[in-house]
């Protein structure tokens, strides 16, 4: 029984490693359009991070004005 399980696991593993040889398939698929989308997302995330930092500074300023 154990042998069957081990064989089954090995078969599964070999299949999954075989599938892993071509890594990031999606990213290379469809003429690598996903790379373009990822780049847009990186830049968008960056700008949102910047906006959150600005937001924090404005809130701090509001607090300081209230305290005065």
């Amino acid at each position: 029984m154990l042998r069957y399980i081990i064989v089954a696991i090995l078969v599964l593993l070999s299949q999954s490693t075989h599938a892993q040889v071509e890594m990031a398939d999606n990213f290379r698929g469809e003429g690598k359009i996903y790379v373009v989308i990822a780049v847009i997302l990186i830049i968008m995330a960056g700008f949102f991070y910047l906006l959150f930092k600005l937001d924090k500074r404005a809130k701090q300023l509001e607090k300081e004005i209230e305290e005065k």
Binding site: K32, I33, V35, V36, I43
Partner: peptide, 15 residues
């Protein structure tokens, strides 16, 4: 090689 990633030109280079 570049394929569709040539479109990154409009996002990466303007930075």
């Amino acid at each position: 090689i570049l394929n569709e990633t040539i479109r990154v030109l409009h996002f990466h280079v303007p930075m």
